[in-house]
Design a protein around this nucleic acid. Structure first.
Lengths: 211, 211
DNA sequence: AACCGTTTCAAACAAGTGTTTAAATAAAGA
DNA sequence: TCTTTATTTAAACACTTGTTTGAAACGGTT
């Protein structure tokens, strides 16, 4: 069987429309028309609209999580070798940097990241769980690593602060489509490289603050 | 004309369903059934589903913004009287505290806040703009105040950090319905009072970090 | 009582939804 | 080549959507 083109055309179109119009606001007719595929092809290749969403998320999130997981493990291994606790900075960077770098790797990736950024606050359980089940494991890895890095912090406080960081990330990930802050009364937005730096600096400063 | 009960019953029901199921995922039939009103009453009292959303948002956000605006002006006035720049802490508190206090004032308020928290990342422009147009003015007031409080910070950096704070707030505001982090492997969540404290501490630490 | 504007109601409307079906076509294997 | 599988297609399905309609019911005033 060839690497069927229709399937990826549907995935690409769904990624774009789910991100820009929302999952419930995207009709299969609009999608298949954009992807130049037949209406029935979505159900043929994926089974249902819900399953399509899952496929859209898994296609990109599985590899991305693998990278993030590897980088975190790398930091932990290096720390063990050095007989030192890992630094919060290195752990955070391992989690955040691949995500935002990936976001700039292609137009579809940008749509995908904005879709992911929103899915944490998605009201629909089907949509949210599809994302959460893939992210929770790596989130717990990160949490465990940070507990080593910041042993003086109470776990509940650390978890809360880590969730603040998730909030910042979600927001940054979504901001691609948000033009409201391109306001003449406000300064222009930062370029990507300094944005990552600023995000890491900001996240870290709060994380290391005294209780 | 009496203060018609149907109208507020619809508003209450819409608040709940829009927050918990999402705007597009809420049908007028489900809504009017919950509100014990006739299907046609939504269009009679509000004109359309879109206009209903606007009414839901305005009912609570206008008063809330008035409080936040007054508190910010209060901080600025006090600073002027003391011949000192306002503190970032006081300004942030004036913006954040009323929001999270309000969230705990009633069950409907909690739904409303979670609706608002999500609307910044809402893909649908109709929904997003309805919220943004009401929040942008006070956001700019806050930004102007913080420029006085932190004059050493480049405006673009300050704006970026302020947006990080918006991300944290959105996340915290939405978290009401998010049970995924109630995980046995993770510590239990903080109570509301300390959550506000932690949020302010975290937001402030990053805001005052060196560039 | 009769009249009034306001509000409620059941019913229908046209349009859009995800999904299924069965026939047509393409691809691949023997 | 013929046969079999995989894919595409147009049409229909059953159902839900927001909105409109015209008549019924209500509440207050004269």
């Amino acid at each position: 069987m060839q690497q069927c083109g229709t399937k990826t055309r549907i995935l690409d179109g769904a990624e774009q429309l789910f991100a820009r119009e929302g999952f419930h606001n995207t009709s299969l007719r609009a999608l298949t028309s954009l992807a130049e595929a037949n209406l029935a092809s979505v159900n043929y290749h994926f089974g249902s609209k819900d399953a399509l969403l899952q496929a859209v998320i898994e296609r990109r999130l599985l590899p991305l999580n693998q990278i993030r997981g590897a980088k975190i493990k790398e930091v932990l291994a290096q720390a063990q070798e050095d007989q030192l606790p890992p630094t919060a900075d290195a752990l955070l960077r391992a989690f955040i940097e691949p995500t935002l770098k990936f976001r700039n790797s292609s137009p579809g990736a940008r749509d995908f990241i904005s879709l992911i950024g929103r899915s944490l606050s998605e009201p629909d359980e089907t949509v949210r769980n599809c994302f959460l089940s893939l992210v929770l494991p790596i989130f717990q890895e990160l949490f465990a690593g940070l507990r080593e890095a910041l042993p003086q912090l109470a776990p509940a406080i650390l978890l809360t602060r880590l969730q603040f960081i998730m909030g910042i990330m979600s927001h940054v990930m979504c901001m691609g489509t948000l033009s409201a802050f391109n306001n003449p009364a406000l300064p222009p937005p930062l370029d990507q490289e300094t944005l990552i730096d600023q995000l890491l600096k900001y996240a870290l400063a709060g994380l290391e603050a005294p209780e």
